Amino acid sequence: MAEGVAEERAERERSVAVPLTGEPLPLELVNTTYIKGGVRGRRMDALAAGPEALDSWLAAERHRFAPGVADALAAAPPAGPERYQEFLELRRALRALAGARTSGEAPDPEALAVVNAYARTAADWRELAPGPEFRAVVRRAVEDPLRLALGAISAAAVELFAGEGAERLMACPAPGCILYFVRTHARREWCTVGCGNRVRVARHSRRAREGDEAG
């Protein structure tokens, strides 16, 4: 019985494994929603399980944050419902902006407001520390580790959508895919090798059918 429960739990964990890693943090958050199974697949949400899923995602991505934020996240208490909802709100805004950026549309004002509000929590500055020696310390606008993470992701999104490399931001053109990626080289067309293979197989099948019909 215990083995059956463990297998079921492992299968659930595999079913929500995020299929894309290594993209900028804003896209990593956006890509926690994806389609499993291609064109006839179903929409998955790696954060659907609630605050615990967010904790797991932040732990997996912690090394991607700046050292000060990463250290704060390492010592952070578990995420509560409020912070969880804030991350979901940011994810919705980032997806809307990514869609607009890659399709040439104007950004949604509400999505802009969400990203800009969280980006302000990334503010930090250097001060002289109290004491007998001259020593600089970094102060931050907020101390909550999860709000620091929200700020870091939002600040990175500003650069992603408006920086020098913004034109490399792509929506994966594979049918049934809703992921975004940054085109790291000219020949890259798809978010993953899997999407590229699926498209090539579909093209081959279509050409085969057309050949049969022509014959």
Rank of each mutant, 00 (worst) to 15 (best):
Y84K: 10
L169E: 03
A75T: 12
G80V: 14
R206W: 00
N116E: 08
R9M: 10
E23L: 09
R43C: 04
Y118K: 02
Y84W: 13
A152V: 04
G163I: 12
G68A: 13
E28R: 14
G215S: 13
Y180E: 03
R91P: 01
R64N: 05
P19I: 09
E13I: 12
Y180K: 09
L20K: 06
Y84M: 10
C191K: 07
E82S: 09
V137C: 04
A171I: 08
A113R: 09
A2G: 14
G151A: 08
P51L: 13
F65L: 04
V138R: 15
Y34Q: 07
R120C: 11
A111P: 04
A117K: 14
L150C: 10
P109H: 11
A171R: 13
V5Y: 14
F87P: 00
A53Q: 01
E213D: 13
R40T: 12
P24I: 12
G80W: 04
R140N: 04
V30G: 02
A66P: 01
H63M: 12
Y180C: 03
I153C: 00
H185D: 07
Y180F: 15
R92D: 13
M170S: 06
F134S: 10
L179T: 03
P173S: 06
E210P: 00
Y180G: 01
L58S: 02
G41C: 10
V18H: 02
R126G: 07
A208K: 03
G215Y: 05
R140M: 08
E7G: 13
A6Q: 14
P67R: 13
L88D: 01
A174C: 05
G68N: 11
G176F: 01
A46N: 07
A75S: 15
G104C: 06
R83I: 15
G196N: 03
R188D: 01
S15K: 14
A75W: 07
G41R: 04
V16H: 11
A17E: 13
G38E: 02
P78L: 05
N116Q: 11
A174Y: 05
A70P: 00
L169A: 02
A122V: 06
P78Q: 03
G131Q: 05
L20W: 03
R95P: 00
P132H: 13
M170E: 10
A111H: 02
T21A: 15
G37C: 04
Y180T: 05
G163Q: 05
V182H: 01
A75F: 08
A136Q: 11
R9A: 12
P109G: 04
V201M: 03
A111N: 04
L150T: 08
A70S: 06
A72F: 03
E213A: 12
L58D: 02
V115L: 03
A123P: 02
A166C: 10
G176N: 04
R12A: 09
E3F: 15
V158M: 13
T33C: 15
A17L: 12
L73Y: 00
V201K: 08
A93S: 05
D108N: 12
P130K: 13
G68P: 01
A59E: 11
L112R: 11
V16G: 02
R9K: 14
A129V: 07
E167N: 06
A162M: 07
E61P: 02
A49N: 10
C177N: 01
E127N: 08
G37K: 07
R140E: 06
E105N: 14
P51C: 12
A162G: 06
A157Q: 05
S56P: 00
A53R: 06
